[in-house]
């Protein structure tokens, strides 16, 4: 947490709103990559910040981050309607392929479908670690703090995830 928030009370709305601005997107991305969009990451972010506000007297600003990530994760695990397997990542169309042959385009499409499935089949821990690092560009240390694990573990998860994805995606053509 940055210095200007130290020794300040989260019960003050300007402090609370600054915490929201700094952390809500990270929290949302974390939930999205871990559980997919069908499990309403927006709502869980709202619930987590609501809990932070209700406990504003007991949480110091430096602890807000780990408080939010823990609460959000528990909230997700407790949610009864939680959908277990289906992770609906929206696949954006790859751009700038206008000069490619239909065969190439088809292969690309199959490659993407295999990748989508492979990502969904990763464990939640592998997926969130890998995607936060590769898509959001989060440093190993930052991810370690978010997830409350060691830097070494982050490194291992990213590597394992990459290995699994490659095994499932890189099917050699005969």
């Amino acid at each position: 947490m940055s210095d200007h928030l130290k020794n300040k009370n989260i019960c003050k709305e300007e402090v609370f709103s600054r915490i929201f601005t700094t952390l809500s997107t990270d929290l949302f991305n974390f939930l999205y990559y871990k559980y997919g969009e069908n499990n309403n990451p927006q709502d869980i972010v709202q619930a987590a910040f609501e809990k932070l506000w209700n406990n504003c007297k007991d949480v110091v600003p430096e602890k807000a981050k780990s408080f939010l990530f823990t609460v959000a994760n528990n909230e997700m695990l407790n949610s009864l309607s939680r959908k277990k397997t289906v992770l609906n990542y929206s696949l954006q169309k790859p751009k700038d392929y206008t000069n490619e042959t239909p065969e190439y385009l088809l292969e690309e499409k199959e490659y993407h479908n295999r990748l989508k499935q492979a990502i969904e089949e990763l464990t939640e821990e592998q997926r969130v670690t890998f995607l936060l690092n590769r898509i959001e560009g989060k440093k190993h240390q930052e991810i370690a703090e978010m997830l409350g694990i060691s830097r070494k573990a982050v490194e291992k998860r990213i590597y394992t995830a990459l290995k699994i994805l490659r095994e499932k995606v890189e099917i050699d053509k005969i």
Binding site: T25, N54, L91, P94, I135
Partner: peptide, 28 residues
């Protein structure tokens, strides 16, 4: 190639302003 493809799975944009006003109305 894999990494480039992975990037197409980026999370949808999170609307901080709108989400905060929701929270502010409902909770604060």
């Amino acid at each position: 190639k894999l990494m480039k493809a992975v990037n197409t799975f980026k999370a949808p944009g999170y609307d901080v302003l709108n989400e905060y006003s929701k929270l502010s109305d409902n909770v604060l």
